[in-house]
Amino acid sequence: MTLSSIRKVYQGIADRRQMFRMFDRHAQRPHRFEDDAAPLYAGEWFELAESEHDYMFEVLPPLFMRGEIFAMREFLTGSVTSIFFTLKIDGQFRYFHGYCDLSDKISPTRMRDAIVEREMGPIRAMTRDERLEHIWSSTHDDYRGYAGERWSEPERGKRTVLFYGGSRGATLLDRLTDHEISAKLPVHLRYLPAALAA
């Protein structure tokens, strides 16, 4: 279950509760303490409120600060840590969190550029992948998980969500139909146009 690239994983501005849930949104993955989780987390980002950004700044002295960026001193896994951004977009200061792999020295800059490009684009649009990531991020832990032994070998370890309707039950996240995706999204996100993938 390897994810890659820089990707927005939550639509809207995360409050403190949601922010902490998002920090470890892969906590239920199989073999949590045996595998290298860096590819899962590296590249994930979401927006948060100024108060949450400032709260995190005050938790520990930052590992480093560069203009609009600061990094958390504690690493999530390997060389992946939290990076917080204060970015001026369309004349407004906005605040973001992302996981960067600091073994690549330019990963914070690359993430900053990707966030600015995405947020300067069609904000009121979402790609299919952004819709799936939002569903995963906003679904309670009791209603999401990973395919286990009852699934076929190639499906094991993939993300699942519980889907009510008929006898379906849990289904693979990436196999949700457009209709099922729409049903699982909050009303204000259901009918957004599709954004072109970055």
Score class of each variant (00 low, 15 high):
Arg150Ser: 03
Phe96Asn: 01
Met65Val: 09
Trp136Asn: 07
Lys8Asp: 05
Tyr99Ile: 01
Phe163Met: 09
Cys100His: 10
Asp178Val: 08
Val59Gly: 08
Asp54Glu: 01
Tyr95His: 05
Leu76Trp: 15
Arg144Asp: 08
Tyr191Ser: 10
Arg168Leu: 05
Leu40Glu: 14
Pro61Asn: 00
Glu117Val: 12
Tyr143Arg: 03
Leu102Asn: 08
Ile135Glu: 11
Glu52Cys: 04
His140Leu: 03
Leu76Met: 14
Trp151Arg: 04
Pro193His: 06
Lys105Val: 13
Asp36Val: 05
Gly12Pro: 09
Ala49Gly: 08
Thr160Cys: 01
Arg128Phe: 12
Gln28Leu: 09
Val187Ala: 00
Thr171Glu: 03
Ser103Arg: 12
Thr139Val: 03
Ser167Cys: 13
Ser137Thr: 15
Pro154Tyr: 02
Ser79Gly: 07
Arg16Ser: 12
Glu180Ser: 06
Gly78Tyr: 05
Tyr55Val: 04
Pro39Arg: 07
Leu162Gln: 01
Thr109Gly: 14
Ser51Cys: 03
Ser107Glu: 11
Ile123Tyr: 09
Arg25Tyr: 11
Glu52Leu: 00
Ala27Asp: 12
Gly157Leu: 06
Tyr143Val: 00
His97Val: 01
Leu189Cys: 00
Gly145Lys: 00
Phe57Ser: 12
Pro122Ser: 15
Leu185Phe: 02
Phe75Glu: 05
Asp35Thr: 14
Thr127Leu: 08
Leu87Ala: 09
Arg128Pro: 01
Phe70Arg: 15
Tyr143Cys: 03
Arg168Pro: 01
Lys88Ala: 10
Arg156Gly: 01
Arg128Ala: 12
Asp36Pro: 13
Ile135Ala: 15
Met126Thr: 07
Ala147Asn: 00
Ser82His: 09
Tyr55Ala: 04
Leu60Gln: 05
Leu76Asn: 12
Phe84Gly: 08
Gly98Cys: 08
